[in-house]
């Protein structure tokens, strides 16, 4: 199981929690499981999210592998100028 930290305004879509656990080995699996387990998160995931793995931010990269002890944080999709 992978612990995923959510940002605060997603709490209401995840049964009031800002940290959830899902079974996933990659970012793709993680996003799929999050959307299935917490349908309220699906609209945000569809709009786009970034993921931080052990402090490094990824904007896409479905097949990035996640270790069981990895720190995973869901973030809004990064944009810049």
């Amino acid at each position: 199981m992978v612990k995923v930290r959510l940002w605060g305004s997603l709490r209401q879509a995840a049964d009031g929690r800002t940290e959830v656990e899902v079974e996933a080995r990659t970012f793709k699996e993680l996003l799929d499981r999050l959307g299935e387990t917490y349908p309220g998160l699906a609209p945000q995931i569809a709009r786009g999210v970034s993921l931080s793995l052990d402090g490094v931010i990824y904007r896409e990269a479905w097949f990035t592998e996640i270790g069981p002890e990895s720190e995973v944080v869901l973030m809004p999709y990064m944009t810049g100028g």
Binding site: W7, G55, E71, L74
Partner: peptide, 10 residues
């Protein structure tokens, strides 16, 4: 440091 936006800084 656990950053104010979530991830722990490397």
């Amino acid at each position: 440091t656990k950053s104010s936006y979530g991830p722990t800084f490397p």
